[in-house]
C-alpha cells in the first residue's frame, strides 16, 4: 500500500519539454498536410489519424504521467480499460449505423429514380 503514497504525479521538466516538442511536431504536420493538400486525401487521412493516436499517447505519458508505477498501476489499468471502451463505442457505433443505413427501406425518392 505504501507504494501508492510515494507516487508524485508532477512529472519532470524534461518530460514536459519532450512532450511539448513532440506535440508541436505532431500537430504542425497534420495541419500543414491538410492546408496545403501536399498528398492524396487518403494518404493524408491515414497519416493525420496515426499522428493523433501517437499524440494522445505522448500527452498521456509526458503530461499525465501515466506509467506502470503510478498508483500501483491502477491509473494505467483504468486508462487501458477506457481506451478499449472508447474504441468499442466509436467503432461499434459507426459500423452498426452504416450497416443499418445500407439496409434501410428504400425512400420514395429512391423508388422513383
Amino acid at each position: 500500500m505504501s507504494a501508492s503514497h510515494e507516487t508524485a504525479p508532477h512529472g519532470s521538466l524534461r518530460a514536459y519539454l519532450i512532450g511539448f516538442l513532440l506535440s508541436v511536431v505532431l500537430t504542425a504536420i497534420p495541419f500543414w498536410m491538410v492546408m496545403t493538400g501536399a498528398m492524396a486525401p487518403q494518404v493524408t487521412a491515414a497519416i493525420i489519424v496515426a499522428f493523433a493516436v501517437v499524440q494522445i499517447l505522448v500527452h498521456t505519458v509526458c503530461f499525465l504521467h501515466v506509467n506502470t508505477r503510478s498508483e500501483s498501476g491502477w491509473t494505467l489499468m483504468a486508462f487501458v480499460f477506457t481506451a478499449v471502451m472508447v474504441l468499442i463505442v466509436i467503432a461499434g457505433s459507426l459500423w452498426i449505423m452504416y450497416h443499418i443505413d445500407g439496409n434501410m427501406m428504400p425512400t420514395p425518392e429512391m423508388i422513383a429514380s
Binding site: V34, P41, A45, A52, I56
Partner: peptide, 16 residues
C-alpha cells in the same frame, strides 16, 4: 487530449 481528437476528426478530416 480531447482537443487532439476534435481538431483531427472534426476539423482536419472534415475539411479534407
Amino acid at each position: 487530449i480531447v482537443w487532439i481528437g476534435v481538431f483531427t476528426f472534426v476539423y482536419l478530416l472534415g475539411v479534407l
